[in-house]
């Protein structure tokens, strides 16, 4: 009892120390952070990336390298989840955790109504990512959530996670190849491959890349859901 109190006391002292360190370095944050990059994006962002939404412009053009590795981390995490969730037992007659009799009828009925709306909304967010708030990552998450609702509508639906993972790997390779295409047209990798200054032509790249990333994120999250549903037998 006493030792636990002492431990908590030391812990709180340590956290207070961290808080103090942060408090005294907080003044430095304003010095370290300058608004030069923000002004640069505001002045040149539209001409460089042809994207109305600056956030999309950054993660699809200026910092595409980071986005590719983010997609790679997603792929690795999904592969790890599926590898960990593998069973030695033969997986015939696997029933999902969702029991049709336990799910309220009202929920199932409304899920049927909401499901197509969610899919359309997700696709809208993905395709319109360069014009309005949104993009591949957010839209992909919405599409994956819509697919999760599909399991409530039809609990006996069986999906193969390894098949989903194979498609995701192929999409990831397509993303990397598509991002590297600009070395032939512009001489540098990981930027917009279209040299035309017309915004309409450059937008093709943004929409395609958003769709690819959206498909990849949706497939990854779908694979995670399926792996978790398989666990609850």
């Amino acid at each position: 009892m006493v030792s636990s109190v002492i431990k908590h006391g030391f812990l709180i002292l340590l956290l207070l120390f961290l808080f103090g360190v942060f408090y005294f370095t907080m003044e430095e944050l304003d010095i370290m952070y300058d608004t030069f990059a923000k002004r640069y994006y505001l002045l040149n962002g539209l001409e460089d990336t042809a994207s109305m939404n600056l956030v999309t412009g950054i993660y699809l053009d200026y910092r595409l390298f980071d986005s590719i590795f983010e997609a790679g981390i997603l792929l690795i995490a999904v592969s790890g989840i599926i590898w960990i969730s593998k069973h030695d037992i033969e997986e015939h007659n696997v029933h999902f955790m969702l029991d049709k009799f336990k799910t309220p009828d009202l929920f199932v009925m409304f899920a049927r109504v909401v499901y197509p709306l969610m899919l359309v909304f997700g696709f809208y967010i993905i395709v319109n990512g360069h014009l309005s708030p949104g993009g591949g990552f957010q839209g992909g998450a919405i599409v994956a959530t819509a697919i999760l609702i599909l399991y409530y509508i039809d609990p006996n639906k069986d999906t193969s996670t390894s098949f989903i993972l194979s498609i995701e790997k192929i999409v990831f390779i397509i993303i990397v190849v598509f991002a590297m295409l600009s070395i032939f047209t512009k001489g540098t990798m990981f930027t917009n491959p279209f040299t035309s200054s017309d915004a309409g032509v450059q937008t093709i790249y943004l929409v395609l890349m958003n769709v690819l990333i959206g498909v990849k994120v949706a497939l990854g999250l779908w694979a995670i859901f399926t792996a978790f549903l398989r666990e609850g037998r």
Binding site: A37, K38, Y41, V55, D66, S67, L74, F137, G220, L221
Partner: peptide, 16 residues
């Protein structure tokens, strides 16, 4: 916009 673009990826990575 830069921290926002970075945090989009962080949220997706965090969920996975």
């Amino acid at each position: 916009p830069l921290p926002q673009a970075l945090m989009i990826t962080t949220i997706v990575i965090g969920s996975t």
